[in-house]
Amino acid sequence: MQYEGALSKMPTEIGDPIQYYLVFEDSFLNVNQLLGRDVSITFKGYQCLNCSKRKKIFRQGFCYDCFYSSAEVGDWIMRPELSTAHLGIADRDLEYESKVQLQPHVVYLALSSEVKVGVTRKTQVPTRWIDQGACEAVSILEVPNRYLAGITEVELKKRYVDKTNWRKMLQNEVLTLDLLEEKTRIYDFLPDEVKPHFNTDLNEHVVLNYPVLEHPKKVTGLNLDKTTQYSGKLIGIKGQYLIFHDGTVFNVRAFEGYVVNISV
Rank of each mutant, 00 (worst) to 15 (best):
R59H: 12
Q60I: 01
G61R: 01
C63R: 04
Y64A: 00
C66K: 02
C66H: 01
S70C: 09
E72C: 01
V73T: 04
W76L: 03
I77N: 03
M78W: 01
R79H: 11
R79E: 11
P80K: 00
E81H: 13
E81G: 05
E81R: 08
E81S: 09
L82K: 15
S83M: 03
T84L: 14
T84K: 15
A85R: 02
A85T: 06
H86I: 04
G88F: 14
A90N: 01
A90T: 13
R92N: 05
D93G: 10
Y96C: 08
E97I: 11
S98D: 09
S98V: 13
K99Q: 15
Q101H: 12
L102H: 06
P104R: 11
P104N: 09
P104I: 05
H105D: 11
H105E: 09
H105M: 11
L109I: 12
E114F: 14
E114D: 08
V115G: 10
V115T: 12
K116Y: 11
G118P: 06
V119G: 08
T120D: 06
R121G: 12
R121P: 08
K122I: 00
K122Q: 15
K122Y: 10
T123L: 12
T123F: 05
Q124C: 04
V125M: 14
V125E: 12
P126N: 05
W129E: 05
W129N: 07
I130D: 11
I130T: 05
D131E: 15
D131K: 07
G133C: 02
G133N: 04
G133V: 09
C135Q: 13
E136P: 06
E136H: 08
A137M: 14
V138T: 01
V138L: 04
S139D: 07
S139Y: 00
I140V: 12
L141K: 10
L141P: 03
E142R: 11
V143S: 03
N145G: 05
R146W: 11
L148E: 06
L148V: 08
A149G: 03
T152W: 08
T152E: 10
E153C: 03
E153P: 05
V154R: 09
E155S: 04
E155H: 07
E155F: 01
L156V: 11
K157H: 09
K158L: 15
R159Q: 14
R159V: 00
R159E: 03
Y160K: 12
Y160C: 06
Y160A: 05
Y160N: 07
V161K: 13
D162G: 07
D162V: 03
D162E: 14
T164E: 08
T164P: 05
N165A: 10
R167H: 14
